[in-house]
Write a protein that binds this DNA or RNA. Structure first.
Length: 249
DNA sequence: TACCAGGTGACTG
DNA sequence: CAGTCACATGGT
């Protein structure tokens, strides 16, 4: 499943000059260089993280992790399993007050209770409660259906498509945006679609590549390219304008 | 202590 | 389209 980049992809090791004027859109070589550098440094990430495993947990976890740390989500997932709420039918049947207590550690527990129930209604009503039926749809149709569910935005939809259905829809999050900005790469437009189109335009649509690429970005940014970046520990520092002191974080 | 964390929807200019 | 705010817990 996870193979070193140099075996599957003949990625370039050249890229635009990190000292060049800013506001430069990344090239194919830039994106290939970034992936190779992160993969060589960290190796495969084996995402998505799981507590018990399975597609049900993947979807629930993707919703619960919205703007919260995964460690908080783990508690909520354990609570759900312990409480015997471990299917979309059981989510729908559980009283709101009970769901609130069960998922409280994941934060925003009232909003997320509604989100879980909205998704449960969707999958039970439209796909007979079977995630495999949703995952069998073409990417465009699957994404459209997911986005129609209240509480499922673009990142959560792509998490489900990429890590659940294992189809190539590149995941963009705040970490992706921060890293690209720090590297001095400017994207036309600030929308999610603008960022995603960049990766889709320049990289092969391989679910394993997209899986590892996003996972590597998040691993690296969470640990090194934080709000206060740890450039002295960063494997990209010599090729990054922030690491070189050319620009401010 | 105050800030931060793998977003989304509602609302505004 | 782009900016702002509410939503809420647990770790550092």
């Amino acid at each position: 499943m996870h193979t070193p980049s140099e075996i599957i992809y003949e990625f370039s090791d050249s890229r635009s000059d990190p000292r060049a004027p800013r506001s430069v859109e990344p090239t194919r070589e830039d994106l290939e260089w970034l992936f190779a550098a992160l993969f060589d440094a960290y190796g495969p990430r084996h995402w998505w993280p799981t507590v018990h495993g399975g597609s049900f947990e993947l979807v629930v976890g993707a919703i619960l992790v919205q703007n919260i740390s995964w460690s908080n989500v783990e508690r909520a997932l354990v609570n759900m399993r312990d409480a015997g709420v471990w299917s979309f039918r059981e989510i729908l049947d559980a009283p709101d007050e009970e769901m609130h207590e069960i998922i409280r550690p994941s934060g925003y527990y009232k909003a997320k209770t509604r989100k879980l129930k909205e998704f449960a209604e969707f999958i039970l009503g439209e796909h007979d409660g079977d995630l495999a039926r949703l995952f069998a749809l073409p990417i465009g149709e699957m994404r459209e259906q997911l986005l129609s569910v209240w509480g499922i935005g673009e990142e959560t939809a792509d998490d489900i498509i990429l890590y659940g259905a294992k189809k190539p829809s590149f995941v963009i999050d705040m970490y992706t945006r921060r890293l690209l900005a720090r590297l001095g790469w400017e994207i036309r437009g600030k929308s999610y679609a603008a960022y995603q189109e960049l990766f889709h335009k320049l990289l092969p649509h391989d679910p394993y590549l997209f899986n590892e690429y996003h996972a590597l970005i998040d691993y690296h940014v969470a640990r090194i390219c934080r709000k206060k970046p740890l450039c002295d520990q960063c494997v990209l520092a010599e090729d990054c304008p922030v690491g070189l002191g050319v620009t401010q974080p």
